[in-house]
């Protein structure tokens, strides 16, 4: 294949967008799971896209772009989170999941309210998990990545991931049970 390792040329903004745009929504969903609010999630995705722009040739050569991009997003998130933690000034308000929840048309008003409250508490505790637990649950339980894909992303064996997933769920349950939500 020609041009894989070429530097971006005149037509590359279009080629780059064609390559990455189909994954934008998915990247944003992941970023939202990691960050917990839309503004930071959009910033994270934008930072990633900007970083990847000069690497068009490398991207074009990737066979399975979705997990590749998820991995890149994850490491960028971890890197940025580490930097933010060093500053006492980063204050971000999470979007309220109670307001975002899609109503179930079959539910009674009481059931709908109960569900919104439950999702609110779940988001609250989810946001308080460690980066490792949160990203793992986000990718596996929320966004449907399977264990072999996660093994590629995190570069750890499937068995280790299973244990970590188990611990992540247990921790989340523990938090939910502590405040009587679960």
């Amino acid at each position: 294949m020609s041009g894989i390792f070429s530097f971006p040329g005149k037509s590359d903004p279009q080629r780059f967008a064609q390559l990455v745009e189909p994954h934008l929504q998915h990247l944003y969903r992941l970023a939202f799971r990691f960050c917990g609010n839309r503004a930071d999630a959009e910033d994270l995705v934008q930072d990633l896209v900007v970083k990847l722009y000069p690497r068009y040739g490398e991207l074009a050569a990737v066979e399975m772009l979705r997990p590749w991009l998820a991995r890149a997003l994850y490491y960028l998130y971890i890197d940025q989170a580490r930097r933010y933690r060093r500053s006492p000034l980063e204050i971000v308000e999470a979007d309220d999941p109670q307001l975002l929840a899609v109503p179930d048309p079959a539910a009674t008003p009481e059931q709908a309210q109960e569900r919104r409250q439950f999702l609110g508490r779940l988001q609250h505790h989810f946001d308080r998990l460690s980066d490792e637990h949160r990203t793992l649950l986000a990718l596996h339980d929320m966004e449907g990545y399977n264990l072999p894909e996660l093994a590629e992303i995190f570069d750890v064996p499937v068995g280790t991931l299973k244990s970590r997933l188990h611990r992540a769920r247990s921790r989340l349950r523990e938090l939910l049970e502590k405040d009587g939500t679960f």
């Binding site: 944003y28 939202f32 999941p97 975002l100 899609v102 999702l119 779940l122 988001q123 339980d141």
Partner: peptide, 8 residues
């Protein structure tokens, strides 16, 4: 519930 957690 984790699957249903909304994303704006």
């Amino acid at each position: 519930a984790l699957k249903e957690m909304p994303v704006p």
